[in-house]
Amino acid sequence: MLDEQLTNEALGVLFDAAAPASAVRPWRLDVNGHLIDVYLDGSHALPAHDRAARALLIASGAAVFDLRCAAASLSFDSWVSLCPYRHEPDLLARMVVEPTGLPDQELRSLYAAIRSRHLTRPPAAPTEAVRFALTRAAELENTALSWLPGPFAPLAVLTTDRDEPADQVAAGMALERVLLTAVTYGVATSYLHHLPRTDLS
């Protein structure tokens, strides 16, 4: 079954979900059966501003997370391996989707938030319940969210244990999960990218 090609309808849902992750799309998707490879598209590199391509990998990681949400919306389960081959540094993620009928329900619920992520919302300080939900969202992607006081609103700093390419892609996945979770709580967010960390305010 897994060697059968995904339908055009399913591919449309998956590709449309990944598109809003970044204004610049530094990735390309290769599909073979139920295997989706996410490659870094070097034509979008900005070496003068991001020599380590960290921002590009984070944006690509966000797209990978959106693909997972879209797969869940189609009742697919999904498994992701980050930077699986050292000899293929441009292969950022390999995702397998399987129509098990047992999708991750939380990913499925976050799929609806993808389209509304950029809607304008009134600023408001996050409640303790919201902070807990956002911190948990980061932890589900094996990252950490630390809260700091800010001049107008609290700052949440997203960190990974290491700073390898796989960690940067993972940071993008976690960042997207945090942002989409914030949408479900009606919380306005913006994020700042500073080397070597990503800040979410």
Score class of each variant (00 low, 15 high):
Pro154Tyr: 12
Glu139Lys: 02
Glu98Tyr: 12
Leu155Phe: 15
Ala137Leu: 07
Arg177Trp: 00
Thr127Arg: 13
Thr135Lys: 11
Ala93Val: 01
Val169Lys: 06
Ala138Tyr: 03
Pro149Leu: 03
Leu107Tyr: 06
Trp147Thr: 12
Phe132Ile: 02
Leu92Asp: 12
Arg136Gln: 09
Trp79Ala: 08
Leu107Lys: 14
Ala171Trp: 13
Thr160Gly: 11
Gly150Ala: 12
Asp77Met: 04
Cys83Gln: 15
Leu102Trp: 08
Gly172Val: 00
Asp163Trp: 10
Asp77Ile: 00
Val178Thr: 09
Leu119Glu: 00
Ser109Cys: 04
Val178Cys: 10
Leu91Val: 05
Leu82Pro: 10
Gln168Cys: 15
Ala133Tyr: 03
Pro151Thr: 00
Cys83Lys: 12
Arg121Tyr: 04
Gln168Trp: 15
Leu145Trp: 08
Asp167Ile: 03
Ser109Glu: 04
Leu92Thr: 10
Val130Ile: 13
Arg162Tyr: 12
Glu88Lys: 15
Ala166Glu: 13
Thr159Arg: 15
Leu91Lys: 10
Ala137Phe: 09
Glu141His: 08
Leu179Pro: 05
Ala156Thr: 12
Leu179His: 03
Ala93Met: 01
Arg177Tyr: 01
Leu102Ile: 07
Ser109Asp: 02
Glu176Gly: 00
Leu155Arg: 15
Arg177Ser: 02
Leu107Gln: 12
Asp77Leu: 01
Tyr85Asn: 02
Ile114Asp: 12
Val80Thr: 11
Arg136Glu: 09
Leu148Thr: 05
Leu119Pro: 00
Pro122Cys: 00
Arg94Phe: 11
Leu145Ile: 08
Ala138Pro: 07
Ile114Arg: 14
Asp161Lys: 10
Leu155Pro: 07
Glu106Asn: 05
Trp147Val: 08
Arg136Asn: 13
Ser109Pro: 06
Arg86Pro: 05
Val97Met: 05
Asp163Arg: 11
Leu102Phe: 08
Thr159Cys: 07
Gly101Trp: 15
Glu98Arg: 00
Pro165Thr: 04
Val130Ala: 02
Arg131Gly: 06
Gln105Arg: 09
Val80Ser: 08
Glu128Leu: 02
Gly150Leu: 12
Glu164Gln: 11
Thr135Ser: 15
Gln168Asp: 11
Pro123Thr: 10
Leu148Val: 07
Gly172Leu: 08
Leu119Met: 01
Ala133Ser: 01
Pro151Gly: 03
Thr120Glu: 06
Val157Ile: 15
Arg162Asp: 08
Glu176Trp: 01
Leu155Ile: 11
Ala125Asp: 12
Gly101Arg: 14
Pro89Phe: 06
Tyr111Ala: 07
Ser116Ile: 14
Pro84Leu: 04
Val80Met: 06
Met95Arg: 03
Glu106Leu: 08
Ser109Arg: 11
Ser109Gln: 15
Asn142Ala: 10
Asp104Met: 05
Phe132Arg: 06
Leu91Glu: 09
Asp104Tyr: 07
Arg121Gln: 02
Asp167Gln: 03
Ser116Glu: 13
Arg136Thr: 11
Ala174Cys: 01
Trp147Gly: 09
Thr135Ile: 03
Leu119Tyr: 03
Leu91Arg: 09
Pro89Trp: 13
Leu158Lys: 08
Val96Pro: 01
